[in-house]
Write a protein that binds this DNA or RNA. Sequence first.
DNA 1: GGGTTACGTTGGTCGCCCCCACGACTGCCT
DNA 2: AGGCAGTCGTGGGGGCGACCAACGTAACCC
Lengths: 154, 154
Amino acid sequence: MKREHPAAEAMPARVAEMPTWLISRVYAHARRLLAEGFASVGVRGYHYRLLAALEEFGPASQAVLGRRTSIDRSDVVAALNDLAARGLIQRAPDPDDRRRNVITITPDGTEQLQALDEVVAGVQERLLAPLPPADRTQLIGLLTRLLEDDSEPA
Amino acid sequence: MKREHPAAEAMPARVAEMPTWLISRVYAHARRLLAEGFASVGVRGYHYRLLAALEEFGPASQAVLGRRTSIDRSDVVAALNDLAARGLIQRAPDPDDRRRNVITITPDGTEQLQALDEVVAGVQERLLAPLPPADRTQLIGLLTRLLEDDSEPA
DNA sequence: GGGTTACGTTGGTCGCCCCCACGACTGCCT
DNA sequence: AGGCAGTCGTGGGGGCGACCAACGTAACCC
């Protein structure tokens, strides 16, 4: 009955309360939860983000998608290949700019996305479970502020 | 003058405020800062964690080190190889248990660790820069609570 | 028209996390 | 004493997320 993970033991003190460490732990936890949820549908984070961007902003070029989702151009290609292979998106050359592809989400894609939305919502809930609503907004606010000042003013 | 990163553009709304997303962004940010800091010394997160564990708890077997730092046994081997090659740690067979190696941090290792400690402290500062002290403790508290209830009570 | 910029794509790297299998060895239990 | 369970070090593999370099094509702008 003692399966569990290798057993945590004790972490070096200087690390235990280090924000970067806490972040990475929470990240690992979140990623795990997401992976669990996505696994059932055979999908990864990249796929979800791309589908979401497509559904919210409509058809777009791969480069734009990449910028919107913070995914590298290269990785967008691969992820879209996967999605196209499953018929969740459609790739067509842009008549107005022959360098581009216009990516469109298909009905199947929209459907899949809705299912994923529920999965993701469940994950948020599971992740934040230990916090009462007020603290959740607090946390979201704090995290957001960490990112706002991200760009170096220099 | 606007080379920057690809340029953020706009994120899908359903994702933008999603805790898992914020976490992953903050994590990416933190990781970058750490990587920058560590790069100058040619060291990675694993190395730092191991050195810290050695300095705080004293010599230990590789398995114990792995448990203390949450690093997989396999990865501990590789990281220790690196550290040993630089003379920052020393590997010796344990006379009391011939399955084990006893890992000891060398004076050079301690020295290196101190340098790294400063680097890491600087990174924490840079990461939390947008937040006043009160909010920093708030954040740390919230993150910690997300982790506490991590293990399923079952 | 010629230089610069943007696009899609290929093909890598790296950090971190994780699993499996093996041989060597210990420890415990009977 | 003998045997089985469990540990330890090690090597192998894989996966995900982020990132970078380079190319050929096409558009842009002066």
